[in-house]
Design a protein around this nucleic acid. Structure first.
Lengths: 413, 413
DNA sequence: CCACTTAAACAACGCTGTTGCCAAAGTGCA
DNA sequence: TGCACTTTGGCAACAGCGTTGTTTAAGTGG
């Protein structure tokens, strides 16, 4: 299984370009984009774009939507992504809560469902809760946000289910490891078991990775790198480098919490000393949020320096409770660093809005991202993507086939 | 200039596969590799490999070299890379020394040249020294390592010159920034100036990046991620993630030395406090190498945890002077960390051999790597690759055209 | 000596994006 | 009102890619 397989043939080429066009359609959103702009954006000839968009329209993934004002000649025809050509479910299995979302191809969350969850309970109980959540999200009429949205009717095309859980885990194989506090999950093949049960492709990833992926897809297209720092019961991070999610070979990347920030500092629950998490949580517990922000900022500054990233995003319950303090505190440390180096403006810091859903939304993007060619940074050694259960409700396989882009194929989704 | 241009057409496809095959030929080395093994390794059909290798042979990049023993049928024909089909010069502009190497397509260093250099001198002086080094490496008979090596005869195909210099600098544009201690270089367009002067493509990168790239190409093919930590007059690093060099958007990645390792610790020359570099160099100055290694190891552990890398490589003059102490010291810290986490064996640590040439060798690989499809992790925003001076001695452009792989095109090299 | 196996080239093919050409659909001036 | 002009985008022919089917080459083993 340790093969590279990066050779590319014509179907690969076709998928790559189709995914590229789909991604531009996606980022254009409601406004749409013309064929010539697609050609400009991809570097393909207008004629190639015409052919590709014709295929996409035939498959129901794209549609014409009005015209631009003329600039002296025939006006450009605007194309748009058809949002309900495909849906994905995102599940966030948190320690005490399950959040599920239904997201359409355009990235719009069309339904949300929350339920209490005990991640420490028996596997069967958790799986049953997940199954119920998926069923509830898919089956019923429109959803909580009313009939204004063109609610998915029965028989919608469900591309798969993305599951975000606390780490550590193996994204490639979809197996959980010893989730902190819940050792009974160690070695549980969540992806395969859930996929079998649902009859749908399932992708599993760390909660922080899912959140980062979701944020990456909402950010400006192409390039851009950022760190998502999540401060809740623990401190974790998700890394997006050059526009792609970086998981590392064993899905272990982003273990931000146990970075040593104070040599021989106070002991941490991990057994180490002076970890950011320990320092930060201690400050929070002591009520000194400014100090917590300073510690977090120092860790963030290390990240910014090491990875040369473009921005820092903050999230998690603790941050959400006092956004301003944390954003300003981290900003201050980064500004100080930028001043010392004199290398341009400081890296911007922002809090993630609507945090309660960020992880679940991102989990859905685990399924949707490959359709748009958003692969992770390739690790040929590790298996990647959703292995099990093809089809089931995959319709005519329109979007299913146009999965991986060239270079670093994820396994079929 | 901020375009993506990741659309792929047939020539792109061809280049990608050709580069892939070339890379397998390169890693096979003297032993060579058969067509069927190439097919196995690329995922292409044997017939496609036959066509591609036929082209490569026609271009003089590959040649048949013997046969394998038969396994009951026609024996496999072994193919090998033709090493002298192309050469690259690598220059390491260090603060007090210039090291130049001539490297062939197979990655063998066929000539070395060292000369004292004052990087603080006038630009003209430094450029003249660089020009002389290139001329000396290319013109004379075989070189210092005697007539055993099939020395490049006059008229060799020189693909370009890679230059490694202390950072910070902009790899994409080939412009130096304020090199620590030598502010006069700030804004100097080294790539374009040198390219104009030599009539050759030139690529500029940080010394640590070049070293890491060189090491990456020598490592096991595909995948694999590691950090190269360089402890000399300062402390820097080069990151290879998923087999590809990671520079960040502004070539700033790898600023390892000024990671805060001790909150509110002793002041550092950078203006910050508790930086790894300050702590490490202080320990070295105090003669406590074990402590220096422990500090370095703690910083390395942060890297390993954050990026989930596979191994740590150490280099630089200070390390070279006491390899054992540093390797063991860093190993100890990483082993301790692995034991706490219980997640498999500790990450291996090793010192880089022949350190005096590691950077220069890597600089040459800045030119050679794209031929084999080794692109960096893409940052569509930043211009990349060697822009200037095409041709000159580019021969029939055989290798020149087969530059970028699919996905994240570097500008033509 | 011949049957069998394996490797690799030859030939025909389907499909890709590209090029050349032309119809469609506007604007703007006479 | 009409005609020239501009711009968009489809149609058709094409070159080039990897693939498939077949044949030839070059060995082993009974």
């Amino acid at each position: 299984m340790n093969r590279s397989y990066t050779g590319a043939n014509l179907p690969t080429l076709r998928s790559h370009n189709a995914a590229l066009v789909l991604d531009l359609l996606r980022t254009a959103g409601e406004a749409g984009i013309s064929r010539l702009e697609l050609a400009e954006g991809t570097g393909l000839t207008p004629q190639a774009v015409s052919k590709i968009t014709a295929r996409l329209r035939a498959e129901g993934l794209a549609a014409e939507a009005g015209r631009r004002p003329s600039t002296g000649g025939k006006p450009r025809t605007v194309l748009r992504l058809v949002p309900d050509a495909g849906y994905a479910v995102g599940l966030h299995l948190d320690r005490d809560e399950l959040t599920g979302v239904l997201v359409d191809l355009a990235g719009t969350t069309v339904a949300v469902r929350r339920a209490p969850l005990d991640l420490g309970a028996d596997a069967e109980v958790v799986l049953e809760a997940a199954t119920r959540a998926v069923a509830a999200l898919v089956l019923p009429p429109p959803g909580p946000d009313g009939p204004t949205t063109p609610g998915p009717e029965r028989g919608l095309t469900l591309l798969g289910v993305g599951v975000a859980a606390p780490g550590p885990l193996d994204h490639g194989r979809g197996v959980l490891h010893r989730v902190t506090g819940f050792p009974q999950w160690d070695g549980f093949a969540l992806r395969d078991v859930l996929s079998e049960r649902l009859g749908l492709p399932v992708v599993v990833d760390k909660d922080t990775n899912a959140a980062a992926l979701g944020l990456a897809l909402r950010a400006r297209p192409g390039g851009g790198s950022f760190a998502y720092l999540h401060l809740g019961t623990g401190l974790g991070s998700g890394l997006v480098l050059g526009g792609a999610l970086y998981r590392g070979a064993r899905t272990g990347a982003g273990e931000f919490g146990h970075q040593t920030l104070q040599l021989d500092g106070p002991p941490c629950s991990c057994g180490g000393r002076g970890c950011v998490e320990a320092l930060c949580l201690a400050a929070v517990a002591g009520g000194d949020l400014a100090e917590a922000a300073r510690v977090l900022g120092t860790g963030a500054a290390n990240l910014v320096g090491l990875l040369d990233i473009d921005r820092v995003l903050l999230g998690g319950r603790v941050v959400a409770a006092d956004e301003e303090v944390f954003v300003r505190g981290v900003e201050a440390v980064l500004a100080d660093r930028a001043r010392r180096e004199g290398s341009g403006p400081a890296v911007p810091v922002a809090a993630v809005a609507g945090d309660g859903r960020a992880v679940a939304d991102g989990a859905a993007q685990l399924v949707l991202a490959p359709v748009f060619g958003h692969a992770d940074i390739a690790f040929p050694g590790a298996a990647s993507g959703a292995g099990a259960a093809e089809g089931a409700s995959g319709a005519d396989g329109a979007a299913g086939g146009s999965g991986g882009p060239l270079g670093g194929f994820p396994a079929v989704i």
